[in-house]
């Protein structure tokens, strides 16, 4: 029984982290129909920005919990800047090109961001463990968990609900939905497509950076963390159904729980879990759990 509880908690913790690092990818695909490989680079920049801001903040000796706000600020700032630069500077020139080309454009942006982080922050690791440790720990089924892990759960949940509210309940969100369903008709109806695209991409970039910033306190921030995240985020989004936020949440939950179960019950399989879940889901539901079938154009 204890084991089940621990698996559930571990699965939830990992799932919330997975959702946090894949929400932005899902949002951007949903609206722009671009699989954004640069997501990994934005994640890394968010992590570095978050780590260096927390280090500076902690050195200043101010209110300790403010470090959490520092993470948020770093994510929003770096996401805003990079999102705008990448969309306005590069991506907008590729709208209407084949999806593969767009994917490769974002891959190129990813390569550039990888080296940019190296040039800006060097190759030595950054540590920002202060927020991770200052919240203390909680005991579940006889095992200590850092409260920070549960904070991630809250942040991920908040992000999910916020996005849902934004898309379903605001005027701009409805425009976004219209664009998702049919860009051409939306334009004909007077929707400013460019504005929808730049806003969505920037929001997606902020989410990617947010994932990075809130990961930073748990890890040693080193070059190459972006690559690891891309495949994970892709898997979550593909399992859930590309472009579906609900799907990303369910996909994250599924992968998180399966992986936690594997770690506790059959550690040998840990390496394969993500790909096996992905392959299994795609075999049964080729468009992912929440994928929508689109009208075919003859």
């Amino acid at each position: 029984m204890d084991k089940l509880a621990v698996i559930a908690v571990d699965g939830l913790v990992f799932a919330s982290w997975l959702f946090l690092v894949s929400a932005g990818l899902s949002l951007i695909y949903g609206v722009l129909r671009i699989l954004n490989v640069a997501h990994g680079g934005l994640f890394a920049v968010g992590a570095y920005a978050g780590a260096s801001l927390v280090v500076a903040y902690s050195a200043a000796g101010l209110w300790p919990l403010g470090a959490l706000l520092a993470l948020l600020a770093a994510a929003v700032a770096s996401g805003l800047v990079l999102g705008l630069v990448v969309e306005r500077g590069v991506l907008r020139w590729t709208y209407g090109r084949e999806p593969v080309m767009q994917l490769l454009v974002t891959f190129s942006v990813f390569l550039i961001l990888e080296d940019l982080t190296k040039l800006l922050w060097g190759v030595s690791p950054y540590y920002a463990y202060q927020p991770y440790q200052l919240l203390g720990q909680a005991r579940v089924a006889g095992i200590d968990y850092p409260v920070y892990s549960f904070l991630l759960l809250v942040v991920a949940g908040g992000t999910g609900l916020g996005l849902w509210w934004f898309v379903r309940r605001t005027r701009f969100g409805r425009l976004v939905v219209a664009v998702i369903h049919d860009p051409e008709i939306s334009v004909a109806m007077g929707v400013n497509l460019a504005r929808v695209y730049v806003t969505t991409f920037t929001l997606g970039a902020v989410l990617a950076a947010l994932g990075g910033a809130f990961t930073a306190p748990m890890i040693s921030v080193v070059p190459g963390i972006g690559v690891e995240v891309i495949v994970l985020a892709f898997a979550v989004v593909v399992v859930g159904g590309l472009g579906s936020l609900e799907g990303a949440a369910v996909g994250a939950l599924l992968i998180g729980l399966v992986r936690a179960a594997a770690v506790h019950l059959v550690p040998v399989l840990e390496l394969f879990t993500i790909y096996l879940v992905m392959a299994a889901v795609l075999l049964v539901r080729p468009l992912g759990l929440f994928g929508r079938i689109e009208a075919r154009r003859i």
Binding site: T94, V105, S108, F110, I112, D115
Partner: peptide, 20 residues
């Protein structure tokens, strides 16, 4: 060694945008 990925990325961008 620290900028070769960047060069590859930039070359790729230029090719996709200007030499499709």
């Amino acid at each position: 060694p620290y900028a070769w990925q960047m060069m590859l990325g930039a070359a790729m961008l230029l090719i996709i945008l200007f030499l499709p």
